Computed example of a mutant assay.
Amino acid sequence: MNIQQYQDYEAFIFDMDGTLIDSMKQHQQAWEFALQQFNIPYTSEQMLAMSGMPTGLSVEKLLADAHISNIDVAAVAEAKEQRYHQLVNSEVLATPLIEVFEYYLGKKPMAVGTGASQQQAELILAKLGIAKQFEAIVGADLVAEHKPAPDTFLKCAELMNVQPQACLVFEDADAGVVAANAAGMDVVDVRNLWPANYFVD
């Protein structure tokens, strides 16, 4: 990874799961646990397409696609999130992108813009020991519209006091790439940097 190729940008914004944190395996296992518990059908293609979306909205879409209306969305989302926390609390690992973070730490402002909740993001980043080193952490519950809307990344730029067009976003999901483009930011799709490990058949 050529870290110095990013030096012309004023600030960096990282997605969290699957981008800065190697947690997609735990997310997949948590989804499988919750969806099997409630007998909700799904395909790998569906799950990949919803990567980066808040959990509740993903559940709503799965239920709508399956024409199921008698299941409590909040209960499914809670089962998924509880299982995810059990899995991720045992081990939090960084992706190779941590090298970019470490290289530019103290040189450029950096933020995290995630589809996870604010509390969840802060807890996971704290476990990795880097939560306090970001100028901003913006969870999906801090903005009016989640990814693929640009709100998350625009909020990060605002909190860093940097113009959106001067920011570089690192993402691993289609929704995040669309959000970055909508925010007027350049984006690095990290799926081109290492093999995918989320709902890969």
Rank of each mutant, 00 (worst) to 15 (best):
143 V>P: 01
87 L>I: 08
192 N>L: 14
22 D>F: 02
94 A>M: 04
22 D>R: 10
103 Y>S: 05
93 L>E: 07
165 Q>R: 14
126 A>F: 06
182 A>C: 03
59 V>L: 11
59 V>T: 02
29 Q>M: 10
112 V>D: 01
190 V>L: 11
157 A>Q: 08
142 L>G: 05
49 A>M: 10
40 I>W: 02
18 G>E: 07
141 D>H: 00
167 C>S: 05
168 L>N: 15
149 A>K: 15
34 A>T: 02
183 A>M: 13
192 N>E: 13
90 S>W: 02
175 A>F: 13
160 M>K: 12
108 K>W: 05
155 K>D: 11
17 D>P: 03
48 L>D: 06
178 V>E: 09
168 L>G: 15
80 K>E: 09
69 S>T: 15
117 S>I: 02
10 E>H: 12
181 N>M: 10
183 A>F: 04
191 R>S: 13
107 K>C: 05
164 P>D: 14
49 A>P: 00
24 M>D: 15
121 A>H: 10
127 K>N: 14
109 P>Q: 00
62 L>G: 12
131 A>C: 08
141 D>T: 11
45 E>G: 03
153 F>P: 01
55 T>Y: 01
113 G>E: 03
106 G>V: 04
178 V>T: 12
134 F>V: 12
80 K>T: 11
195 P>E: 09
108 K>Y: 10
166 A>P: 00
92 V>T: 13
29 Q>D: 14
168 L>R: 04
167 C>E: 08
145 E>S: 11
160 M>H: 11
11 A>C: 04
132 K>M: 04
193 L>F: 10
169 V>S: 08
101 F>Q: 07
49 A>L: 09
147 K>D: 03
192 N>Y: 11
101 F>I: 02
22 D>Q: 12
72 D>Y: 04
140 A>G: 07
149 A>D: 03
7 Q>F: 05
56 G>Q: 13
194 W>P: 04
61 K>Q: 14
21 I>Q: 04
22 D>L: 05
47 M>Q: 12
179 A>T: 06
120 Q>P: 00
160 M>S: 04
83 R>L: 00
154 L>W: 03
41 P>Y: 07
158 E>Q: 15
111 A>Q: 02
190 V>G: 03
43 T>K: 09
147 K>A: 11
35 L>F: 01
27 H>P: 06
47 M>P: 06
4 Q>V: 14
169 V>R: 14
87 L>Y: 00
113 G>S: 08
116 A>C: 13
99 E>K: 13
85 H>F: 09
115 G>N: 10
105 L>M: 06
173 A>W: 10
131 A>F: 02
185 M>L: 14
171 E>I: 03
9 Y>V: 12
148 P>N: 08
35 L>I: 09
115 G>S: 03
